[in-house]
Simulated assay, not measured.
Amino acid sequence: MSDKASTQPKKIVIFASGSGTNAENIIKYFQDHDQTRVLAVFSNKKYSGALERAHKLNIKALHFDREAFYNSNDVLNLLKDMDPDLIVLAGFLWLFPSNIIQQFPDRIINIHPALLPKYGGKGMYGARVHESVIAKKEKQSGITIHYVNEKYDEGQTIFQATTSIDETDTPESLAFKIHELEYEHFPQVIQQLLEKDN
């Protein structure tokens, strides 16, 4: 390990659109971690729970709109200045633009609440995923952590974890099981990816 790797903490930036429970879990996981820190949480929703949670945890909370994300390079330039080792999508619903993906190759990851390639793609997020899984009478579901490319949920898989589905499960009870998997595994996989880069 180089001196730089041992003295410079790894930097994470999180993108989230929703309530931000995964973002909060990741922030708290790395709070007492000398080698890694969360720099900021970005959200496309001005009043998202994710920004509120970040603010309460003294993490920079940044809102942006479509213009800043897709057309003006404002978000890209902010990311260049921060130079994160990993960009983590934690319930972020917009398709990532190719200019950001190209700037940070193999440094952007996403979590999906199903076992890809099943139940992925545009419009498949949150309750919609769990409703579809239950409707198809699947015996198991889970999470997929994957690299981000220019298509929804089609980047290379990094990690999957599964949970069984009981006949009595509803979309709500399945969502609870999936959240438990996310909270347990997502920070650990992030840490493993960052340590692998050392």
Rank of each mutant, 00 (worst) to 15 (best):
P171M: 12
D65E: 15
E52T: 12
D169H: 13
A61V: 02
Q103I: 00
I101Q: 13
S141Q: 14
K60H: 12
Q31M: 11
A40G: 10
I145C: 02
P84E: 03
T144V: 04
K80M: 08
R37F: 09
I101N: 09
E138C: 14
D3T: 00
K46N: 10
I111K: 00
G155C: 03
A16Q: 03
S72A: 11
F30N: 04
L39H: 01
P171S: 06
K11E: 02
L39V: 08
N198Q: 07
G120V: 02
D65P: 08
N149L: 03
Y119T: 00
I134M: 11
Y29S: 03
F42Y: 13
I26Q: 08
A40F: 05
E154K: 08
N149Q: 11
A114P: 13
Q192G: 12
T144R: 12
K4R: 12
I26A: 03
I59P: 02
E195M: 15
E172M: 11
L93W: 01
I165G: 12
Q192S: 15
I87C: 04
F30G: 08
E150I: 09
T7A: 09
R66F: 06
S6T: 04
I190T: 04
A90C: 08
A54K: 00
N198G: 10
A175L: 07
K151E: 13
H130I: 08
A175V: 00
L51Q: 11
A161N: 14
S17Q: 08
V88R: 02
D74M: 06
T170M: 11
S72E: 07
L115I: 10
S98W: 03
D166S: 15
K46A: 15
V75L: 10
Y183E: 10
N25Y: 01
S164Q: 15
M124D: 12
N198F: 07
A114N: 12
N198C: 06
N77H: 07
A90H: 07
H55V: 02
H130R: 10
T162G: 05
H179D: 05
I109C: 01
G142V: 01
L181D: 05
T144C: 05
F159D: 13
L193C: 06
Y29W: 01
N44D: 15
H146P: 01
G121H: 05
I87D: 00
I87A: 00
N77L: 10
D32Y: 14
E150Y: 03
A127V: 14
W94Y: 11
K11P: 00
I190Y: 05
G120E: 07
T163C: 14
Q156L: 06
I87Q: 03
Q140S: 13
A40K: 09
N198V: 09
V189Q: 14
F42R: 12
